[in-house]
Design a protein around this nucleic acid. Structure first.
Ligand SMILES: [Mg+2]
Length: 218
DNA sequence: GCGACAG
DNA sequence: ATCTTGTCGC
């Protein structure tokens, strides 16, 4: 696949300006789940000054693992809340080059529009490669939510905007957060992620890539 | 000024 | 995310 160069900003101010200019490119719209056949999960870990990305492609809804690829890249940007894309997208693009087939949707271990500028890592990557993406984060970044008694999810909202949903995978467990990245909307993002849950604290699409990076799976 | 703060 | 072994709790 053709991947556009991904330049890094000189500083946070420039990085913020770029985000402000690209945020308008995000498109939120329903994704026809009945046509979803392949979905990819993405995660990134660090070691010896390098970012190591892993992408696992699953069949949907059967969730059989179809392909696993990795991509390494020197870390060239610090971790600063709000600017995670500049740190993790480089290694992710390296992994994408190795995919034999690009899955219909990519799920990132990060937020999509549930970001201060509504342009988190999942949205940034989606716009960059013009492909559907969903953000599935382990912790909240912005917004507030309320999960009613008897329910296992609630909308994530900030300043009157519905940014995504907080999901309780199991009773008594911590919630994870789903928000659309690009070319999907809140409802379909939620529906798709829910269908990749298998009884663990995290959906398979983010849980499995992490296990491969940690060498729990080979 | 203080607290929040994806990975 | 990473540095790190055993240990407390469901
Ligand atoms: Mg991660």
């Amino acid at each position: 696949m053709v991947i556009p160069p991904f330049p890094l900003p000189r500083d946070l101010e420039e990085g913020r300006l770029w985000q402000e200019n690209l945020r308008s490119k995000v498109i939120l719209k329903p994704f026809p789940i009945e046509n979803l056949k392949t979905i990819g999960g993405v995660d990134v870990t660090y070691k010896e000054g390098k970012g190591n990305a892993c992408i696992v492609v699953f069949s949907f809804p059967s969730l059989e693992i179809k392909e696993v690829v990795y991509g390494d890249k020197e870390v060239d940007f610090p971790y600063v809340p709000g600017y995670l894309a500049y740190r993790e997208i480089p290694p992710i693009l390296e992994a994408l080059r190795k995919l034999s087939t690009l899955p219909q949707i990519l799920v990132l271990d990060a937020h999509g529009i549930a970001h201060p500028l509504r342009f988190g890592l999942a949205s940034h990557l989606g716009v960059h490669i013009n492909h559907p993406t969903i953000g599935c984060a382990k912790r909240k970044f912005v917004g507030s939510y309320e999960i009613k008694e008897g329910e296992n999810w609630g909308y994530l909202v900030e300043k009157g905007e519905t940014l995504g949903v907080a999901v309780l995978p199991q009773k008594g467990k911590k919630p994870f957060f789903v928000s659309p990245g690009h070319l999907v909307d809140v409802e379909t993002s939620f529906e798709i992620i829910i269908r990749t849950l298998k009884g663990y604290s995290l959906p398979e699409v983010t849980r499995i890539p992490h296990l491969y990076l940690k060498r729990v799976l080979l």
